[in-house]
Design a protein around this nucleic acid. Sequence first.
DNA 1: CTCGTAAGTAACTGACCCGTCAGTTACTAT
DNA 2: ATAGTAACTGACGGGTCAGTTACTTACGAG
Lengths: 230, 230
Amino acid sequence: MNNTTGGTGTRRRMPQAQRREQLLGLALREFGRRGYHLTQMEHVAAAADVSKALLYQHFASKEELFAEVVGSVVAELTGRLGAAVRAEDDSVDRIRAMVRVLFDYATDEPDAWTLVIRHLDKPEVGPGLRELRDRLGASFADLLLIRRRVDPALSPAALAVNEHRARLLVPLMYGSMLSMVSWWLEHPDTPRDRAEAMAVEFIWLGLDRLRTGERLRSSDEVSDEPPDDQ
Amino acid sequence: MNNTTGGTGTRRRMPQAQRREQLLGLALREFGRRGYHLTQMEHVAAAADVSKALLYQHFASKEELFAEVVGSVVAELTGRLGAAVRAEDDSVDRIRAMVRVLFDYATDEPDAWTLVIRHLDKPEVGPGLRELRDRLGASFADLLLIRRRVDPALSPAALAVNEHRARLLVPLMYGSMLSMVSWWLEHPDTPRDRAEAMAVEFIWLGLDRLRTGERLRSSDEVSDEPPDDQ
DNA sequence: CTCGTAAGTAACTGACCCGTCAGTTACTAT
DNA sequence: ATAGTAACTGACGGGTCAGTTACTTACGAG
């Protein structure tokens, strides 16, 4: 029964679960580095020093393998984000926590990060990543719509207006966050503190303004024509 | 469309330049809708009701065709952005102009837009898109570093500090812009004015704060400030 | 009318890559 | 030893797709 890690030296055969885990990890790396279309099953197999056929005993198809990898990444990341947000009460702190989580994740798992970033806008590859983006957006929406400790100063009408504006803020926020992290990864000379603080500051401004209802000199001169062709 | 009214009825043959133009346009559409890897040369040829071989008489390879398409998109978009920015003097107006250009472009050329967005983070596909992103970033940097009409209130040291912060602002800005436009494309029920105005507002805040030197209470550890409303 | 040339096409090639299967090796139980 | 099982492999079918080739058709010049 105690076959696991016997005294024998180089062990090539592994129990199912372990092998599967290993393959998932390697697949994540390969997919992250080359992108879905450019990585082939042989690459993953070779990374594990194993034949392609074995890979197919664990995963039914390339798509399924990719989906599984994406699923684990999404679960991990959304888990971290949720925990971080839940641990804070104040909005600024929540933003700070989310940004920190993203930077941490990008640092800890660069391959997973590039995997996500690269495939976020590719519907061809499966809906898993879309889901991540939507969950990220939902986190932000929660953040924005947080019942501010029973703030009686806001009328329901004002809340509705704010909710509408909040929806528009979501893509601005996660867009800037993701972009900042990616940028920072490509500019390692930049101190992480700076990047992180700047992102928090930048994003929090929108929230701040939303909360106080303050606005730019208003939208009178916004758009000139209604070009709604399609 | 058949200018030269040949004796025979429907004219299928075209002069070189015209056909090339047509193929480029169709290729843009196909690449934009399916993405690089999923579109095949036959798709482009079929879209023009033409054989693959003819396509290869105009473009040496799939990669070259794609590069050419990307080149034209990049040229067009950077051109529009440059013109729009140059036409305005004030920073807010410049941001507004850039946002408007992006929304216009995404509306006018949805395929080109998705082409850009989809392939921005794919090095495998050629460096053309990276260039676009960098040029976009450069535009923002220019915007941020604009000599503010000889503002004597700022010392050189302060300018240097600002320059450093400005570099960090760039990815936040274009990230949120691009994200907002993409989001809006997927939510056509949202009035464009709103989305546009919100983007301008959101982005301008960063610039505003940078200019005035105002900051969140600063970088080290911002104790949770009570986010009360007034 | 006829020849030459350019435009256009259908059929083909070669390479690549996903997925499979018959067979082999290591390990366990009796 | 012997049998049984789980992990593993080499080799190949089969489909796809970028790129090529050999052929046909239109058209202008003499």
